[in-house]
Amino acid sequence: MPQASIFFRTWRELLPYLLKWGVGLTICTFFIMLVTPPVSRPTIFSRFSKIFMAFSQIIPEPAPDTATHWIMAAAFLVILPLVLSIALIWAGGSLVAKSEENGELTLWLAQPIARWQIILQKYGGLLVLALALTILVCVLMLIYNWLLKINLPLNILVLGCLSCGLTALIHGSLAFLLGVMKGHTSLSRLIGIGVLILTCLLFLLPSLPSALRLLSPFTINARLSLFNPQPSVWTLLVLSSMSIVLYLASQIGFERRDLNI
């Protein structure tokens, strides 16, 4: 299929992102998991509470027999979507917008290729990046699990990582949508990061009604990793459908948009 060349071209663009963020994530994971000295459970909670009361919302008091490393792994699963989201916002915001800024889109659209094909292939690139980063996180967690022998249930770990990846994909998709609609890389990234901060606040605000807090993808992750020891596949479906909705909005938006190219 000749049109698939845009997908491969997109991938060539995304490869440096994957390398940079992959190396960064690996270093961060090993630093947090292995270099941080083990602390007792009460110490963690007293520190968190002193620093920021809202942390108690993220990591509530676990059962007394919960291992410290288990708590750290679970906490890591809450922080991970944040890191992955930033990575995907950075990539998603630039995918179409950068092509528009550097003139590629003008020439692509002079060739026999439909607008939807461009969006599909660009979004395909974002999906593969999200998948690659999620797999990397999964592998890192497995290594951590094996090295410290904490016996974290494999299904929780995998589903936890998947939900992290999907949460990040939602934010990446939103930045992608903004890039498609505005054609401006920096603006899309900026708004994407702004929305990410907003969803974190939604998640952290204890006084917010729980229905509103559910709007934050982080709530689902926190529930998945801590409150809900038997994570449901439905949770992943909810997260996936949010990404699909954003992708469809990108398609519709791009089809209807006047391109100033």
Binding site: Q3, S5, N102, G103, L107, P112, I261
Partner: peptide
């Protein structure tokens, strides 16, 4: 065939690569 006015072309790829990519679409 369409040649736009004042087309901004940026990137590390060279002219041959760009034309190859466009030719692949046809």
């Amino acid at each position: 065939g369409y040649a736009p006015a004042d087309c901004v072309l940026r990137g590390r790829q060279n002219g041959a690569e760009m034309l190859h990519n466009l030719a692949k679409l046809r």
